[in-house]
Nucleic acid binder design. Structure first.
Lengths: 260, 260
DNA sequence: CGGATACTTGATGAGAATCAACCCGGGTGG
DNA sequence: CCACCCGGGTTGATTCTCATCAAGTATCCG
């Protein structure tokens, strides 16, 4: 934790200068700081600032770099022929972007910054070469792949929920857990994405996300103000999230009664 | 193609003996045969037969091996507290299993054989050590991770489809494409999974899958007999799959009229 | 043959997509 | 400084799909 904080301040220091980061920092952010050593200290990567709404890479673009989110947040998406934008997931600090290009040498998704953000640029060719000498780097790639796979699994689970209110509840809990793991508050969320982004991630209409949020708010689980969400009653939200279709209605009614 | 066929017959030969496979074979099956060389020829892995319905690994189990599907097929799943089984995807020959354990050193999903199958067992510790000497092995891991990520992305896209008939249509097309890539027929499918498995993958009720299949059959897109599915009219199925909610109904009606 | 499981089909009610109107905050330009 | 506009967000009314419950058929196993 101290190490992580230290490297964060290092970023702040360098944001205006020749921004450079050690590979060791990446290892620590990824949660495998124990693999850091003198060899990884010696490897520097450059930081690139990405303004809000800017695109980091697009579908079909040949793989040149992998990216590591240093600050801010991104959505990764796929566009189908009809113009529908499927949101595959959201990347927070410490997440790797572009891994789905490892098969086929070209990106399979788009990455768009949701706010002013910064990424560590990992030139893929270099990375492959260097990782032969430095096992910790190879480990970093594998670890990040596993993490991304787990996140996608979580997202699939979100999408499969029987009712839209449950979907949204799970989404919020998922996001809160990730934020908490980054050392931020686990019950105060500032959504960086639009309702439409959430809807396109969950596979529902954007109006439905709106309704689900107000529904959860009426049930006393959360408090909503624009994009700021406070999880008021974690237990109730958990109960809600567990609910299968039939019991969901009961849970809301129950919560509503309790609030009244 | 010749190489792949050769290695397949080699498996058949060895199925009863001391089944051993070269790492080169894996590279070829994964689609990166150009990385094979004398070094990868020298690495042997053992084959393990998995009977139908047997479990390869379960959630939470510490990561010991990664698996490479040599024949047959698997489903990977996650179980939630309520007993619901979320199907994350289906693995066919050439797919790697267990990659989501790369983060956390323990499996994040279950893998169950859908039929009598065989996997190549890759002891993870060995694999890490060996891949330092043999870059092609490290590449194999990364390539497989990318492929798995792409498959999950595809699955998310399936799940997000507006209508259940579209979901099923996309699922069939997805499966057909994968089978075709393996050299099998792209229009005759034998489903190895139950309707319920498909439903739990798509996030719908299993009755709905049934109805969607008969719906597509009535529309003349496919012919269904038990678990054998023939794609009769690929174009119609593609049209259906593209359809957004409103136009889907029209497409079915249209196809039904044409068939009548 | 019997039991279990997979699959199909039907009827019904509830939830969500759709269409549409409206509100609100932030930015732009007069 | 105000008017305007525009995208994001909320809310309402209606239609339709799908989940659910239920019953029945088929198929595979010992």
């Amino acid at each position: 934790m101290d190490l992580r904080a230290a490297s964060i301040t290092r970023i702040e220091d360098r944001r205006r200068g020749a921004a450079q980061l050690h590979a060791s920092d990446l290892l620590r952010w990824a949660g495998i700081g124990e693999l850091a050593g003198p060899d990884t200290d010696a490897i520097d990567y450059s930081l690139r600032r990405i303004p809000a709404l800017a695109t980091l890479y697009v579908e079909g673009q040949p793989l040149q770099h992998l990216y590591f989110v240093a600050s801010g947040s991104f959505k990764s998406t796929q566009n189908d022929v009809e113009g529908y934008e499927q949101v595959l997931g959201f990347a927070l600090r410490g997440d790797m972007l572009g891994l789905d290009a490892l098969c086929g040498q070209q990106h399979a998704s788009n990455a768009v910054a949701l706010e002013d953000s910064a990424v560590v640029v990992l030139p893929f060719g270099d990375l492959l070469a260097t990782s032969r000498e430095v096992p910790a780097l190879a480990q970093l790639l594998l670890h990040a792949s596993g993490a991304e796979l787990q996140r996608r699994g979580d997202t699939q689970y979100l999408m499969a929920a029987p009712s839209s209110e449950v979907r949204v509840a799970r989404f919020l809990l998922h996001l809160a857990r990730r934020q908490a793991a980054l050392g931020q508050s686990g019950h105060r969320l500032r959504l960086r994405m639009t309702r439409r982004d959430i809807a396109n991630c969950l596979g529902v209409a954007h109006e439905t996300v709106s309704r689900a949020l107000t529904g959860l708010a009426n049930g006393g689980c959360i408090a909503v103000s624009h994009r700021d969400i406070e999880i008021v009653d974690v237990d109730a939200l958990h109960e809600m999230q567990r609910a299968t279709r039939g019991s969901a209605r009961n849970a809301v009614a129950q919560a509503a009664r309790a609030a009244a």
